[in-house]
């Protein structure tokens, strides 16, 4: 009986596992192997180079720059983008009328394709024709008008701004779903105890949202580390590597320089960072849940 149950599980799991193994696990393993070799592409020999790629990587200033930029993006994503998403969610759920309309309006950026978002924001930032410089000129702040994407001092934050604009509404929708599902009785009880709006948010909403906050944090972490498309289209990592991310640098090394081994080394570092961060966040959230359960 038990054995046939197990066979059934296996039979149902096998197809998904097979796809997962072929398209996810195998490539990761192969990238791992490649990261210890030098390879210029199909038809060319793959030469084992031991730890050379890793040695070069840790002495490569552009890698560190890309890592730093990725960390900046990650921090902004988690500590600015998620709160904005939560704020939008609170505004939308507390709206007196036309809640659906507001939800739809705010959600539009996330529905747009990344290419469209990137091109739209390139127009917004355009030095000659852009709305930002147009506004600044219009209100007499002409001196502040600049080539936002064209100078190293502003390009990274310009790109991150567009990224926040695109993805904050995505998290808004997740938070809206969670907020709608919260038990109204808890709020009624709090109201009877005389809690004001801020206290309700701080002592009820946030703790109840914790599992969702962790999930969105993980999504946001992983999304930042593999962020590529928006930056690739808006600046291609430039000018002068000022918006280079780990993923754009990997692409440059792999598909512009044809150093597929070195690119795999960058990919492995990205994989490790994502893996470690995800495990840490998951463990923390599990431990907290366990602690809270024990407390009753």
């Amino acid at each position: 009986m038990i054995r046939s149950e197990r066979l059934k599980w296996a039979a149902f799991l096998a197809p998904a596992l097979a796809v997962y193994a072929v398209f996810l696990i195998y490539p990761v393993v192969q990238s791992g192997v490649l990261s210890f070799s030098s390879w210029a592409g199909p038809g060319r020999p793959s030469i084992p180079v031991g730890l050379d790629n890793y040695r070069e990587l840790f002495g490569d200033p552009i890698f560190w720059r890309a890592l730093r930029n990725t960390v900046v993006l990650l921090v902004v994503s988690v500590f600015v983008q998620l709160p904005i998403g939560l704020g939008l969610a609170l505004i939308v759920t507390s709206a007196r009328r036309a809640r659906r309309l507001w939800r739809g309006v705010f959600f539009i950026p996330t529905l747009m394709s990344t290419v469209a978002v990137a091109i739209l924001w390139r127009f917004v930032y355009s030095p000659d024709y852009g709305i930002i410089n147009g506004f600044l000129r219009g209100v007499g702040l002409e001196d502040l008008a600049q080539g936002w994407l064209g100078q190293t001092s502003t390009a990274l934050f310009a790109v991150i701004g567009a990224n926040v604009w695109q993805w904050a509404p995505f998290y808004m929708i997740i938070y809206v779903a969670a907020l709608v599902g919260l038990d109204p009785e808890v709020y009624e009880a709090a109201a009877l105890d005389g809690a004001d709006g801020w206290q309700k948010f701080w002592h009820i909403t946030l703790p109840l949202l914790r599992p969702v906050l962790f999930t969105t944090a993980i999504l946001s972490l992983a999304g930042s580390i593999k962020a590529f498309d928006l930056v690739y289209i808006m600046t291609d990592g430039g000018p002068s590597n000022s918006t280079e991310l780990l993923a754009t640098y990997m692409f440059r090394q792999g598909f512009t320089n044809y150093r597929l081994g070195y690119a795999s080394t960058i990919a492995m570092v990205m994989f490790l960072i994502t893996f470690v961060l995800t495990v840490v966040v998951l463990l923390r959230s599990n431990r907290r849940e366990a602690v809270e359960k024990a407390r009753g």
Partner: peptide, 23 residues
């Protein structure tokens, strides 16, 4: 441009897969 950017994006996202399935 759109077409090739899309391809590039796909290529990067699935870099390892691309490498494994070349040709």
């Amino acid at each position: 441009m759109k077409a090739h950017r899309f391809l590039a994006v796909a290529a990067a996202a699935a870099m390892a897969v691309t490498l494994a399935a070349c040709g």
